[in-house]
Design a binder for these strands. Structure first.
Lengths: 328, 328
DNA sequence: ACCCCCTGGGAGATCGATTTCCGACATGCT
DNA sequence: AGCATGTCGGAAATCGATCTCCCAGGGGGT
């Protein structure tokens, strides 16, 4: 009933623990092919599975990478975790995913839990640009951490993100190209993405442009935004949403209030998640090069510490046009 | 730079490792309050974090529970994982979430990875009622496993699920109550949930009732279903979907084909996920008592092995009526 | 005054793997 | 033949915590 240990395999194969380890862990030196076969066979027969804790204790590595996202309720973060999972799996590792429930305290707790020997390195999508920094800085001293999709002030480590400024540029240019000039922005105010999108938008449209700032990226927030947009309907003919979930909430509420999309108001999302295709109309958005970002992130995570000096690396977005911004 | 160990704390506090451990691990016996304070202080000052692998190796427990879901792309499974996370956290543990990418091979691999010393116990939402069984049976011999939301044949362990038969009953009764008698069912054919919902539906409606079986629970499958429903539009005035994501794909496609919902066809979902409220019309669904199920599941996971004998425990569903089934 | 019991600290064994170090043996070269 | 070199198996140390076992000292009972 109790799990077989390395020594059981070794005895069954008639060799020492050292030899069995050399065969099964693969590393180290050559062993006689004949002995190797006997060990493999014994391991197979006994159903041997190396004890992960013992191996991790001895080698100091777990073969596991973690990722902490603000919330899995936002499908974009699921997609993001998936992209990282593929890269990690391709590299022969395992990924564990944690959810910070949009709360910096839970985020800090999750970081601590994962870092105390459960993972070799960590991707973090910080909940807040301001409040997440200190916990991350402490953690980054202990193990490699790479920020992903968002950065945090004073994090002390590198961030791999989208080039938000050019993404906003693409969207605004596209909207102006179809004749919309009274563009409003809906974004959150806590995340670095929100802040960068707001900054780029204000830069492009001037300080008088309509902006609606909400506490978080949720569909509920999107509905709230819709109500405010409706109040000032004649001053707005297009809305750039800082996240797809916002756009979904917004479009569904506009629809119920009989505001035509894109007839009266054109709408764009941000992140290009699956659900956008399901809405009526399907929503224009911006796609992140998640695979490339994940690959780069993993490289940085495994690189020597000095390559993770605090800075932001930005990846180019891609515009995906759909019916929510078709010409009328 | 290198992390402080227990022995460092002990030396700083002027006590032995044993005493330091007794204070910090909390278990075992009393220690002199004065010494305890000194140890706590030293640990605090050095920023001591116990090495998780070492502790797990010695105690044989990790304080971590795992859950493997078919895919995180389905928001219902995210909600489910969340409910489990809350129970686990309330019990002082940590949850790790894995995604099987709807593939029994990846599922088996994830089970193996997690069970080789990373978790004390595992919740599995099996991908397939037939194909997932053997891997789970093997795994359940090594550590406690509880199936959740779905069961698998020959799994050798207990399953905590919804009472699918009465859920289908609630939906069918409700639809008949608003005068719909030509009801169709859309479900998948691989999962136990799909199978049970199909069986209950056939039992209630007779073998001639329209049923559409799809390979999986996705919005794309929902669109395919919509096309088939449209082909036989005059034989159908209501559709029971075996999952919310199916309903979402179905309604959005019906909408595009100018089929009125609920005017011509009433639609119900299954799982009561958030997104249902966003659609036009909002969709009637069935809510799972996820908290109660998670609590029961955790109890079973921590109980002695004999309490996890193979069987299915069913929890009562709750009908949530929305506009997609309003009377016309 | 003596002994026993109880409390609580410390030395060392232990969990299960990997890895260093040593020695045995075979091989090749002069 | 003799010695240097290389290959490979095994004994034992090691990772960092917990836990068993022993022992010292204080308090209470007779």
């Amino acid at each position: 009933m109790t799990a077989p240990r390395l020594i059981d395999v070794a005895e069954a194969a008639g060799v020492s623990r050292a030899t069995a380890s050399r065969v099964l862990a693969g590393t180290q030196r050559n062993v006689d092919p004949d002995l190797a076969r006997r060990v493999e066979e014994a391991a197979q027969r006994l159903g041997y599975q190396p004890n992960h804790s013992a191996r991790a204790l001895r080698t100091g590595a777990t073969g596991t990478i973690g990722v902490i996202v603000p919330t899995l309720a936002n499908p974009y973060f699921v997609q993001l975790a998936d992209a990282i999972a593929q890269q990690v799996r391709a590299a022969g590792g395992t990924l564990v995913v944690s959810d910070a429930a949009n709360d910096t305290a839970i985020e800090a707790e999750q970081i601590d839990t994962l870092l105390s020997g459960r993972v070799d390195g960590l991707f973090v999508v910080p909940v807040s640009a301001d409040a997440s920094g200190p916990a991350i800085r402490d953690a980054a001293r202990r193990r490699p951490i790479v920020l992903f999709d968002r950065w945090a002030k004073g994090s002390g480590t590198v961030a791999v993100t989208l080039d938000n400024a050019s993404a906003v540029g693409l969207l605004v240019d596209h909207l102006e190209g179809i004749g919309r000039h009274r563009i409003a922005l809906v974004a959150d105010q806590a995340s670095s993405s929100g802040a960068e999108r707001l900054a780029a938008f204000t830069e492009a449209q001037g300080p008088d442009a309509t902006t609606i700032l909400l506490p978080d990226f949720t569909t509920d927030a999107g509905r709230t935004a819709a109500r405010r947009i409706i109040e000032q309907r004649d001053r707005v003919d297009a809305v750039v949403c800082g996240a797809d979930v916002l756009a979904v909430g917004l479009v569904s509420t506009l629809h119920r209030s009989r505001v035509a999309v894109p007839g009266q108001i054109a709408v764009t999302g941000f992140d290009d998640t699956e659900m956008l295709k399901l809405l009526d109309p399907p929503i224009t958005s911006v796609r992140h090069p998640l695979s490339a970002m994940a690959e780069r992130g993993l490289t940085l995570l495994q690189a020597p510490g000095r390559e993770r000096a605090e800075r932001v690396e930005r990846f180019p977005p891609q515009l995906v046009v759909r019916a929510s911004t078709s010409e009328t």
